[in-house]
């Protein structure tokens, strides 16, 4: 086998364009922070009687007086409660950071939804959640690799290996073999 036939290893989710599932009886829109204009247009394309908007934010922001506003820490309980009242024919549309949309995915799956019912927009930023493979600590909003683990302070290489369960990428110490060999941080894309 020739080396060039080997592709760079990667396990990152792929985000396809999101379209409204017209067959669905109910549509649940979930957005982290203030909704983008595209998301607002998308939201307004669905009949009012068939939709719910859940905004997740630490500050008071609302685009629709019918929307439900929760903080990140309230999300799991509120979403679980909402889904408990919804019909099998429900579709979720979620916009936010990558960690956020996969957190929503986990809650929705726990509530009995299947993957095809959860439509995810491409993450709004390149920020990543990082799982330290040495101390299992989570570091949020990582933008560069290597990054410092907020648990054990080691310098972690951010690998393109994503866990949907942890909603995080894996981080492995980069200078364990040679402490003098620490590359400059590169921005993650």
């Amino acid at each position: 086998m020739q080396p060039e036939s080997l592709e760079a290893p990667t396990n990152r989710p792929i985000y396809s364009p999101v379209i409204v599932n017209n067959k669905s009886a109910h549509h649940l829109f979930i957005c982290e922070g203030y909704p983008s204009r595209e998301f607002q247009i998308f939201y307004s394309s669905v009949d009012d009687s068939k939709k719910t908007l859940l905004l997740v934010s630490e500050s008071d922001s609302t685009i629709d007086h019918d929307s439900i506003l929760v903080t990140h820490s309230e999300l799991t309980a509120k979403l679980t409660q909402l889904l408990g009242e919804m019909p099998l024919s429900t579709t979720i549309y979620v916009l936010g950071s990558e960690a956020f949309i996969w957190d929503v995915h986990s809650v929705a799956t726990q509530a009995g939804m299947v993957a095809e019912q959860i439509k995810m927009f491409a993450p709004v930023s390149g920020q990543r959640r990082l799982f330290c493979t040495h101390c299992y600590h989570i570091t949020e909003d990582v933008t560069h690799s290597p990054a410092v683990c907020s648990g054990c302070q080691r310098n972690l290489l951010v690998r393109d290996h994503f866990s949907r369960l942890h909603a995080a990428y894996v981080g492995v110490q980069i200078d364990a073999e040679d402490p003098d060999d620490l590359p400059l941080p590169q921005e993650l894309i």
Binding site: K23, L88, S89, V114
Partner: peptide, 10 residues
């Protein structure tokens, strides 16, 4: 099920 908007995998 399709008319009702059920996902296939259920």
């Amino acid at each position: 099920a399709e008319q009702l908007g059920w996902p296939d995998s259920v």
